[in-house]
Write a protein that binds this DNA or RNA. Structure first.
Lengths: 195, 195
DNA sequence: CGTTTGATGTTACCAACGTCAACATTGTTG
DNA sequence: CAACAATGTTGACGTTGGTAACATCAAACG
């Protein structure tokens, strides 16, 4: 007994989008396919999102929130600061591997006019803040310290770079053992250099 | 006096594609628009590329060749090894900033079935080889050395990570001075840690 | 309790795109 | 010169993002 009004189409669409994103990649993620899967007319999504990009933005924003939450909880489960810092890097990579399509959406060029969505920027930045907070504790400096941001950026770059190479399948494996290279090891060396 | 046959449509298409990619971004890069700009029918490109993806692959492949060439020449102009290694990082970032859309095409999800184009993989890998060769000279180890590849991967990750953050406009600027963070500085520190 | 109104969903439609099949034109080669 | 392969054109199909006009419902208000 389908009622004319869906009830919470917006959330349903986002959930289905996540599903299709994970299953079939971003190419197959069309508003029409989404509407079809949810059992609603082709143009119904436009009552909840001004255009496709807005839907993707919402998806990415929630992705950043999830990422931040994952970084936070995994860092908090660590016995000490150094372990937490390493763990943040591993959690980041794990997120990218577990939700590859979403990760690429979050950082890739599928989103346009990001500047028009300040909430997206805030969500993204909050992930960096998570890392920055840990490094601040490690360095024991005020938040305005000049090198704090610099070190944060470099740590983030190292993590993001490794993530990129892993996702690109860029032979980031030990040619001898075939194992994926140890980001944890690199991060520990990075930490050992901090004052 | 337009002759029926274009002559070298393939090259013209690629050149025009580069142009439109730089000017209007990848969204506006359609086969039809390309054909229109070149003054040829909509389906003419299919005589030279089996599908759009193949055109993009060719574009990306030439992009990797250019990138490699740039890394090489700029490194060779350096007085010593350390300077060359830093320069490679800067050249990489410069390429990404100068040809942003192309760079995103090369590494982004616009390309599909990369595995079906071994030439693309070779081109991409040759860029890494450029970096690896320098690091090998620096370390003075045989090419099969276990840590050589590890260090190369980490250097590449650092460079790629910085590039990502720059392209994302990720506040990778000194909050005090407003200047972009110094990748060169990070690379010099990286180098100072090598044995 | 009936009406009005705003939110939500539907139908019909448009332009653009990637792609294919069938056909036209050309340069080359036997 | 004739046959052929390469190249370019025409026309069409199905899909997509998006708009406009209309339909339906629920809640606010008299």
């Amino acid at each position: 007994m389908a009622s004319y009004h869906h009830g919470n189409l917006r959330e349903t669409l986002l959930a289905q989008a996540r599903k299709q994103l994970a299953e079939d990649g971003i190419d197959k993620l069309s508003l029409r396919a989404l509407a079809r899967a949810v059992g609603v007319s082709q143009t119904a999504p436009y009552r909840h999102f001004p255009d496709k990009n807005a839907l993707l933005i919402a998806l990415a924003t929630s992705g950043f929130a999830e990422l931040r939450q994952s970084l936070k909880t995994r860092a908090e489960a660590c016995p000490d600061l150094d372990a937490a810092l390493v763990e943040v890097g591993l959690a980041y990579v794990d997120f990218a591997k577990a939700h590859t399509a979403l990760y690429k959406l979050m950082f890739g060029p599928a989103l346009t006019q990001k500047d028009s969505y300040p909430q997206l920027h805030v969500s993204a930045e909050s992930c960096l803040e998570e890392l920055k907070a840990l490094i601040q504790l490690k360095l024991n400096v005020p938040e305005s310290d000049e090198t704090l941001w610099y070190i944060t950026i470099n740590a983030a770059a190292l993590i993001k770079g490794h993530t990129s190479m892993i996702l690109e399948g860029n032979d980031n494996c030990n040619p001898a053992t075939g194992e994926e290279f140890d980001l944890a090891r690199a991060l520990r060396i990075f930490l050992s250099m901090l004052p």
